[in-house]
């Protein structure tokens, strides 16, 4: 069984600022990530993990280099197309949740479908389904702000899977959680990979979580210093 390449990058550079204050956050990243993989991007704070994830998730454009999604270069795609790709193909989980605190749990989960322009009934049905998967459907009508940290992250995972994405990008998903809750959230993410074949790209500095992934990519100062997937033979 040959696996399709989902994401690949070639000589990816990202700099912030101009002239004297110019800072190179990424200095030539080459990667290939297959469909269905679980990938941990590990590194110290400030090493460029989030920057890399934002580029892979098409939230930002590289200063130079290319990113291919399903073999198609994304560099020249219009913003409209990128918006559509993120909305349809990606799910996002962030360290600090990013929820609309005053809104209900259900409305938070519905958001990607609302942006997609789905009808009210259909999006409610699918959001309830997603909430069932993360086992928090009984809190659907609660205000997001009234939940505990672990519950919030479950809601965020529900939001990330509500659009049936190909890949979930998780930036320090357990960073704000205690270790027991964090383990549960991690398990939930890996179950999604197993049951639905969703590719996981997890940014973390937690070695425990990283070791649960099939593949670990270590980043220091904007460069890949090790990749457990040696068969790919990075330069």
């Amino acid at each position: 069984m040959t696996k399709e390449i989902l994401l690949s990058t070639r000589n990816l550079h990202k700099s912030y600022g101009k002239k004297e204050s110019k800072f190179d956050a990424l200095k030539g990243i080459d990667l290939e990530i297959d469909e269905g993989e679980t990938v941990a991007i590990i590194g110290k704070s400030g090493s460029g993990k989030s920057t890399l994830m934002h580029l892979l998730a098409l939230l930002d454009r590289p200063t130079s280099g290319t990113i291919k999604l399903n073999g198609i270069s994304t560099n020249r795609l219009k913003n409209k197309r990128l918006n559509h790709l993120r909305n349809k193909e990606f799910g996002f989980v962030f360290q600090s949740f990013f929820m609309n605190a005053d809104d209900t749990v259900l409305n938070n989960v519905i958001l990607p479908l609302k942006i997609a322009g789905l009808g009210y009934r259909e999006r409610k049905r699918r959001a309830m389904e997603a909430l069932q998967i993360v086992e928090i459907e009984d809190k659907a009508k609660n205000k997001a702000n009234d939940l505990s940290g672990g519950q919030k992250q479950r809601v965020c995972i529900a939001r990330a899977i509500v659009n049936n994405p190909k890949v979930i990008f998780a930036d320090e998903p357990t960073g704000n959680l205690d270790s027991v809750t964090g383990d549960k959230i991690t398990k939930l993410l890996f179950d999604l990979n197993k049951d639905k074949g969703i590719t996981l790209i997890i940014v973390t500095h937690d070695e425990d979580i990283a070791s649960k992934c099939k593949r670990q990519i270590r980043i220091t100062d904007g460069k890949v210093i090790s990749d457990s997937n040696i068969k790919k033979g990075q330069k």
Binding site: N83, H84, R86, F92, F98, N100, P112, I115
Partner: peptide, 13 residues
């Protein structure tokens, strides 16, 4: 933050 989230989740400008 809310606007950022909307845009990240694919809402066009």
């Amino acid at each position: 933050r809310e606007i950022g989230l909307d845009k990240a989740l694919g809402m066009p400008s």
